[in-house]
């Protein structure tokens, strides 16, 4: 692994974990914990008031993240983390709301909420662990399973075209989009830090193969070897055209920061527009001194 991808200092992360809930439920060698570590690093490096950082998860292996971070955290229902986060953010714009959930949760059952939150440029950050399957329920085919890969409900191999999540996010209007693998520790950390500092809908996809189900079923090796395979087969291409980011079965993986732009958020647009149209009658809503860019 390249030096810049390793975490330089060993920051204690325990104070941001619910140690009274450890051991966690994740399998040995699962990459979700690695992504959580990067997330906590990012929080520590950010200058955010951590009392105002809220984590919302849906359901799934990744959905359990909300239960392990020592922040205000909500473990909601399958697919509804994004609208739940929307409610939190709109009701208290001072909150920094992070959705941490799986590919099935965010882009399968929650796909409609995902594209609409992106369209509205809802000021939230999404960290999506893409493990190419529905892991929690035993490795079923997902909207992200590469063509040809085997899954418990695609026992003859998957023949459905998968989503490319960065492309979907881009088309729907997200203002910050990045993709990494779980082993790009520092880059994931940096992207999360950047996303947290941006106003708008930020989306970070972290390719984190499920060692127990997806990898075993497809005979792809285990644990660190597997994570390393994806890491080694990834090419960093910042600013890549999001139309070119399809993931093929065991093929090359384009990673990087693809989109980083500015656009008024839902609340900015609401305040601006209604203020203009309604004049004095409008009661400015939740405008805060926001020192983020």
């Amino acid at each position: 692994m390249k030096k810049e991808d390793q975490l330089e200092e060993k920051n204690p992360i325990e104070d941001l974990l619910r140690m009274d809930r450890i051991p966690h439920i994740w399998c040995p060698g699962c990459g979700i914990g690695t992504v959580v570590t990067s997330f906590i690093e990012a929080l520590k490096k950010s200058k955010l008031d951590l009392d105002k950082v809220v984590v919302v998860s849906g359901i799934g292996c990744t959905g359990r993240v909300a239960g392990y971070v020592k922040l205000d955290s909500f473990h909601t229902t399958h697919g509804r983390a994004v609208p739940f986060a929307t409610g939190l953010k709109l009701a208290n714009p001072e909150l920094n709301v992070v959705v941490f959930s799986g590919d099935g949760d965010i882009a399968g059952i929650g796909g409609n909420h995902f594209i609409h939150a992106a369209r509205r440029n809802m000021d939230i950050t999404i960290i999506c662990v893409n493990n190419f399957n529905y892991a929690m329920t035993g490795g079923q085919v997902a909207a992200t399973t590469p063509l040809g890969a085997n899954a418990s409900t695609a026992p003859y191999g998957n023949f459905e075209f998968p989503f490319s999540l960065p492309y979907l996010a881009d088309a729907a209007g997200a203002t910050y989009i990045a993709r990494w693998t779980a082993l790009h520790l520092r880059r994931v950390t940096k992207s999360i830090q950047e996303a947290l500092s941006r106003r708008g809908f930020s989306f970070i996809e972290v390719i984190t193969p499920c060692v127990t189900l997806y990898a075993r079923r497809n005979r792809l090796g285990d644990g660190l070897n597997l994570l390393k395979y994806y890491y080694d087969n990834s090419e960093i291409h910042h600013g890549a055209d999001t139309r070119t980011l399809d993931i093929s079965y065991q093929g090359k993986l384009v990673v990087g920061k693809f989109v980083d732009k500015e656009k008024p958020t839902f609340l900015d647009a609401m305040n601006e527009h209604l203020g203009k149209v309604l004049g004095d009658k409008y009661v400015l809503y939740g405008r805060i001194n926001d020192d983020r860019d």
Partner: peptide
């Protein structure tokens, strides 16, 4: 906010209620 559907409406409601 007009949500994308009622699944989203009620999820947003619960989130907003927890925000006070």
């Amino acid at each position: 906010i007009q949500m994308e559907d009622e699944l989203g409406s009620i999820a947003a409601l619960i989130g907003a209620s927890w925000a006070g």
